[in-house]
Design a protein around this nucleic acid. Structure first.
Lengths: 248, 248
DNA sequence: CGTCTTATTGACTCGTTTCAATTCAGGTGG
DNA sequence: CCACCTGAATTGAAACGAGTCAATAAGACG
């Protein structure tokens, strides 16, 4: 409610929560200053569409707080999520004028935006930005390939277990805790969004969550709050080899 | 047979068939000379494994001629292809020591290899390499996301139609012909490899190819040679919006 | 001409989807 | 404070698409 208009937030890069993970992570203080000059913030409330696929997009951005999704839609309405953006993740593509996917805020969202042209210019003069962006893009490509295995070959039950494990890990990373022992967190997605992530229907998602709960793999309080009594058991249900994509 | 040992092929970068599409595409002649000093060629015959997931990989490479695949395998043997590498595509990840996927030559294959350490050093001194690699990685990420839509939401028939359209387009790009009107090419993949690409079984692939042939969407001579009488019809069957990922 | 691999086809099974009916939780206003 | 309303989630029953298992066919090769 308080954030439905843009540009209400502002802060210094030096105290930014994503300072050391985002596209600016490798920048020296002088490079940061130049970025600081061209940046501005935008806020969206949960549920708002940030941009539609095909729309002109004259900026790129980092997610500062909150969660956003990238989705593709077919003419008949079938939807597939193709990206889940957490704090520090990058949105948009330098050198591209139009958005390739729908971007939606699933929680209240704050983004740190850079107008595309100045950002591209700065990239040419500041190798550290391009280097970090390459690293992040390669990470995303790895994640996408893990996701392809899930979509192409896993059963509904394994898909759900995998998603819960992914969220648990990311949550642990953000909170800087190890993803072992008793773990507790909130699902940031509705059943329908999970279905879009997993290539399932929301009914199947609901059924499989119920099944995992019945089997004691997860505990649920309300619809969103999850506790995982045994993380290894969850990983086993996900069908992953145990390392689980903890890419160095 | 003639190519089962490495280093049998060698040529100058200036006359290289992938000179203007690979990681080296943006390099000036002096930059190219430095690359030339650290490169070497490797050849594999069709069916050979280039590298196993998890193996140490002390080089990165470009595909010069032939086709390779990236696949992931679960413990119980389920396989999902996660990359289809054509001439000019890049293999390996700077900054990573072990292969993340199985790499297999599906046709006879020639790769232009760079030992990882010297390549990384050169990358730091040569922004053009990193810039091109970023561009290529972003393209791959887009392709992966298109692929995710296919895996998550398309029917078996749509998957087959999509794959044939993708191959037709790539074939047209390599031959520098427009992908319109009467199109003819060979499928570079076996039914099983197509199944691994599409998240299907080989039986379903076979059935759907037969169905598309019965319905006149494609013509088949032998098992591999395909003719497409009406490309728009094929695209329609693929369920894509007509632009079909011809991303600028 | 047999052998081996690759591909096709059929019959049946099973997992996920579809369609429909409740249930649940949160917020609003009487 | 409770009744009501709304959107989200759960659950059930039936339909359907893709998988499984098995038999046969078609090439490729020695």
């Amino acid at each position: 409610m308080a954030l439905h208009d843009a540009q209400l937030v502002h802060q210094e890069c030096s105290s930014c929560p994503i300072r050391h993970r985002a596209v600016c992570a490798r920048c020296e203080t002088d490079e940061l200053e130049r970025l600081e000059q061209i940046k501005y913030y935008r806020s969206y409330q949960a549920g708002q569409t940030v941009i539609w696929s095909g729309d002109r997009m004259d900026y790129v951005a980092s997610v500062v707080t909150g969660i956003a999704t990238l989705t593709q839609t077919m003419e008949d309405g079938r939807r597939q999520m193709v990206g889940l953006l957490l704090p520090s993740d990058f949105v948009g593509r330098p050198g591209r004028d139009n958005a390739a996917y729908d971007v939606t805020a699933t929680t209240d969202l704050v983004m740190c935006c850079f107008r595309k042209k100045p950002f591209e210019d700065l990239m040419l003069r500041t190798p550290h930005i391009g280097q970090r962006l390459l690293e992040m893009t390669l990470d995303e490509l790895d994640a996408a390939r893990e996701w392809m295995l899930l979509l192409g070959r896993k059963t509904a039950r394994e898909k759900i277990a995998s998603l819960i494990a992914i969220i648990a890990r990311r949550d642990a990373t953000l909170k800087l805790r190890a993803a072992k022992g008793q773990i507790t967190f909130d699902l940031p997605l509705t059943r329908e969004e999970m279905a879009d992530y997993l290539g399932l229907t929301l009914e199947t998602v609901s059924r499989q969550i119920s099944a995992l709960r019945r089997d004691g793999v997860i505990h649920l309080e309300g619809k969103r709050h999850v506790t995982i009594p045994d993380f290894d058991r969850l990983i086993e249900e996900a069908g992953d080899d145990s390392d689980g994509g903890m890419v160095s």
